[in-house]
Simulated scan of single mutants.
Amino acid sequence: MIRGNHRDDASDRAPGRRASPRDCSCFDQTRPRPRARVGFHTEQQDTSAPGWRHLLELVDEAVADGREEFRPLAELTPEERRQVITLPAGIARLTAVKHLVLYGSNLVRIPPAIGGMTSLEEFTPYTSYRLHWFPYEITRCRKLTRSTVSTRALYGNYKVRPPFPRLRPSPDSAAERDPSNRDPRRWGTTDAHRCSVCDRVIEQDGPHQAWISLRVATDVLPLLVNACSPACVAALPAGAQDYIPTPHRGGLVDQPASDYD
């Protein structure tokens, strides 16, 4: 992961806006100039941070009152928002939420638990410029029909075609096989306990990872699959039109030309 500030999509920010703490320089989001390699964000969530504890309280409140729209970041202070780099697994309990708004977040990953938000119809992580991919489990949100995503920030997006992080083979050490200790530098996620495809528990020889770009609601999203077996990877659908047509492992893989070449 390369740290620093990136230049945002010019259509997403006002002229002269200074880079904020949520910006990054994983790849240039303004012009087609793909890099040979990119990596996952390596930050891990500080669960002792006030922003994280406040977020947990907001999730509990939303579950209790059954609200249909959830805008948790709007209720955090700017400092608290900077402290939140993912969402808690408890979002799976938000089964009444129809619209999830994460506008301008500092998130670097979304947990697979989003697949439990079965009423979700609209997803708005717009201007979350450090959010480059999504979990395959988001495809379980069968009612999801509308999304607003800053697509230039996504791996493989049609505008600038940045590369995907190269996925490594299945673990070969005891530490790497520990499902409670997933290192995001290696896996991209800290939560890969159940198969993205069949929902079975992932055994110690997994996960078997793959990338696939699929249309989810309004946008084509790069989805990270954590599968329990090669058979589940083989069962994935074809990729979206004008994207890599089959599941792949990232790295130096051929992509269609950018529409902005």
Rank of each mutant, 00 (worst) to 15 (best):
P230D: 13
P230W: 07
P230Y: 01
P230S: 04
P230I: 04
A231Q: 13
A231N: 08
A231F: 05
A231P: 01
C232L: 06
C232S: 03
V233T: 08
V233Y: 02
V233M: 02
V233D: 03
V233G: 00
V233I: 15
V233L: 08
V233P: 00
V233W: 01
A234N: 12
A234P: 03
A234G: 11
A234M: 04
A234D: 14
A234W: 00
A235W: 01
A235S: 15
A235K: 04
L236P: 01
L236F: 07
L236A: 07
L236Y: 03
L236R: 02
P237R: 01
P237W: 07
P237G: 02
P237S: 04
P237M: 07
P237Y: 03
P237D: 08
A238T: 11
A238W: 00
G239D: 06
G239F: 05
G239T: 11
G239A: 08
G239Q: 04
G239S: 06
A240T: 04
A240P: 06
A240C: 09
A240W: 05
Q241C: 01
Q241S: 14
Q241G: 02
Q241T: 13
Q241A: 15
Q241Y: 05
Q241K: 14
Q241P: 00
D242A: 12
D242Y: 05
D242P: 00
D242I: 00
D242W: 06
Y243M: 11
Y243R: 03
Y243H: 14
Y243T: 03
Y243P: 01
I244H: 15
I244A: 05
I244M: 10
I244V: 15
I244F: 04
I244W: 05
P245H: 10
P245I: 05
P245F: 06
T246Y: 09
T246E: 15
T246P: 00
T246H: 13
T246S: 13
T246M: 09
T246D: 14
T246I: 10
P247R: 03
P247V: 04
P247E: 04
P247K: 07
P247L: 09
H248W: 08
R249A: 12
R249T: 15
R249D: 06
R249P: 00
R249M: 05
G250A: 08
G250E: 03
G250P: 08
G250N: 05
G250F: 04
G251V: 10
G251F: 05
G251Q: 03
L252Y: 00
L252R: 13
L252M: 06
L252T: 10
L252A: 15
V253L: 08
V253A: 13
V253W: 05
V253Q: 06
V253C: 07
D254S: 14
D254H: 12
D254F: 04
D254W: 03
Q255E: 11
Q255H: 02
Q255C: 02
Q255T: 00
Q255L: 09
P256S: 12
P256D: 12
P256H: 09
P256R: 08
A257D: 15
A257P: 11
A257L: 15
A257N: 11
S258V: 02
S258K: 07
S258F: 09
S258P: 10
D259F: 10
D259P: 00
D259K: 12
D259C: 07
